[in-house]
Nucleic acid binder design. Structure first.
Lengths: 337, 337
DNA sequence: GAATCCTGAGAAAGCGTTTTCTCGAAACGT
DNA sequence: ACGTTTCGAGAAAACGCTTTCTCAGGATTC
């Protein structure tokens, strides 16, 4: 039995009483059902307005079996990439009258399943963003999460729409760009080990390596934050590389700042690339050469897929891959002598 | 009558049937009510596990009169400041088992009341972040939104806990810092007109002006984004100021980038300050002198206030003001000759 | 051994809606 | 004028849960 706070909220019953009609009629009027006598309808509307009646969404949800809410699970809300996805998702969903509920797993992959399940139950659908969990677990979880769309991951057993970025291709293009500038010693400052997008980059670099036997390519341990980049300065310098591919723009910015502190000139001494093209990338000094991913659009598209799923209940199971676009700016230049 | 999708979700009734007990008993077991025979409780748990039963949160919410969800309304989710507040809020609320629902008003102040009301009805509480609406409207709206906490705004009639940043003090300190470096011609690149925090900065600068009659202080129209800063380069140069106070770090970064493109050296030719100390601020070249606001903590504290409100139902009506801390970095230096 | 207390579990009410079902009255056709 | 359809609105069921109320049966007491 629901507890009541001091002054009870005005409910449909109050309106019905005031207008001298039944609950049902009030409901019909509120939902624009036209099988109601215009005079009575007006009386109901007046009563509702006077009492400032606002339907209780929870009761409505229970009766309707929908909440007009979707959930999103991200590994780390501090990451601008996920923020941008969230924003795109939220804006697009809002257009259709949906709100978004957020769940941050804080990179703890064991929490993801629980968070996702909980969020899914509260909502009409779910966006699972770059989950860190293993393939097997994801596969097993997927059916119970429907309707859901995946970002930067995909499943094979279950049909789940997924939106992916071709990190492999993007990082290859960046590497090619460096080679084109004459760099023959390149370092890759990697991302989080559990990240699928990092694995994709690795795969891309394997291909690159095969295509360019003459280029020396070193892999450096890393992460996904400023700090990672900033702390990697020594390692990068020790590697002797003249071209550095950072995991993402954040890492690149941290590294850029560290190099600057050391008096290492970019791009004269070292060329540096990021990934994602976050808004900040074009405002660093020098502006960052990067692979642009339409991140906000990714969130928007995620909503469109999810919406289709929610409406049709049948999957329009698409698998979209976004191609990053090379964005050449000032942080890369010809290899020094 | 709720519509049923093909395969109905497993409900409490299914578990009750399987365990051979009543709904009530299942509910008791699921909620850790110990007035249940251990043997029966185990049978219920087994049945629940076997059916993979998960209580429906909507039904639960209706019965309990709470949703374990709070809402936040922000003017612009693209702004790192609001992102950080959201993050702090979300993390803190998650600790207590609450989730957060987001609503972005896209700086459209007329939408705020509707969004806020809607969000509030869906949730157990609301955080209204830097609302753009007028004082009168805010005052009128406040009672219907309880429990709620305000960020960067406050009310006088209604008692609403509010968390504010002393922008006035912060901007004065930044200005003093410039004066201390010998700058006598200063420009303020203002923020959005509707922003209360911008008005606070203005007020602070009025005080500053009164205290330093000898210093020339110009006000320049602006905004809150990179672009604003970037586009303001000409105006700033035309003003002849050697010290520039940007509305926030974003604007400062845009301006910094623009100045750099023009070959203007920072801080040798122009000293530049931001505001907020977003994570990016320390990684620009040169690193940004700014007034540090513990933004994430702001979100965290917002949750603590809101939690108190939700629990006590009686307001611990605090009015907290955060003092920004001057963060002197490389973007400010002695005034040139 | 009977009256009383306690324990544990089922029945049912309630949370606030929507929607089906039902039925009286008005409108229509012959 | 009577039977049939249509229309509009109320009664009630349903959504899925929690919790009060109620009561049967075993334990306790004198």
């Amino acid at each position: 039995m629901g507890r009541r706070t001091g002054t009870r909220r005005v409910g449909i019953a109050d309106v019905a009483l005031k207008a001298g009609v039944s609950h049902a009629t009030v409901s019909r009027v509120m939902n624009g059902n036209f099988t109601v006598d215009p005079a009575i309808a007006q009386r109901v509307r007046d009563a509702a307005a006077e009492l400032n009646y606002q339907p209780n969404p929870v009761g409505r949800s229970l009766a309707l079996g929908k909440t007009d809410t979707i959930g999103i699970v991200v590994p780390d809300l501090a990451n601008p990439t996920f923020q941008a996805i969230l924003r795109g998702l939220s804006m697009a969903a809002a257009q259709d009258g949906y709100r978004v509920l957020i769940a941050d797993s804080s990179e703890v992959s064991s929490e993801e399943a629980i968070l996702a399940g909980e969020a899914r139950r509260r909502c009409d659908g779910l966006v699972l963003c770059a989950p860190r969990m293993g393939d097997a677990e994801l596969e097993e979880l997927a059916p119970s999460l429907h309707p859901m769309v995946l970002i930067n991951r995909s499943t094979t057993e279950t049909r789940v729409p997924s939106l992916e970025v071709d990190y492999s291709q993007g990082v290859q293009e960046l590497a090619e760009h460096l080679v084109g500038l004459g760099h023959t010693s390149i370092a890759f400052l990697a991302g989080p080990a559990r990240s699928a997008s990092n694995r994709a980059r690795m795969a891309g670099l394997d291909k690159f390596r095969a295509a360019h036997p003459g280029v020396e390519l070193r892999m450096l341990e890393g992460g996904s934050s400023f700090e990672t980049g900033h702390e990697a300065v020594d390692e990068v310098l020790a590697s002797g590389a003249t071209g550095v591919l950072a995991f993402n723009d954040l890492v690149a910015m941290g590294l850029l700042s560290g190099l600057h502190e050391r008096g290492v000139r970019v791009p004269e001494d070292i060329s540096l690339t990021g990934f994602d093209d976050i808004p900040f990338a074009r405002y660093t000094t020098p502006p960052l050469t990067t692979a642009a991913v339409p991140i906000t659009e990714l969130g928007e598209r995620a909503w469109h897929s999810l919406r289709a799923l929610i409406r049709n209940a049948e999957a329009p199971d698409e698998e979209t891959t976004f191609q990053p676009r090379l964005e050449i700016r000032g942080s890369t230049g010809p290899a020094g002598t």
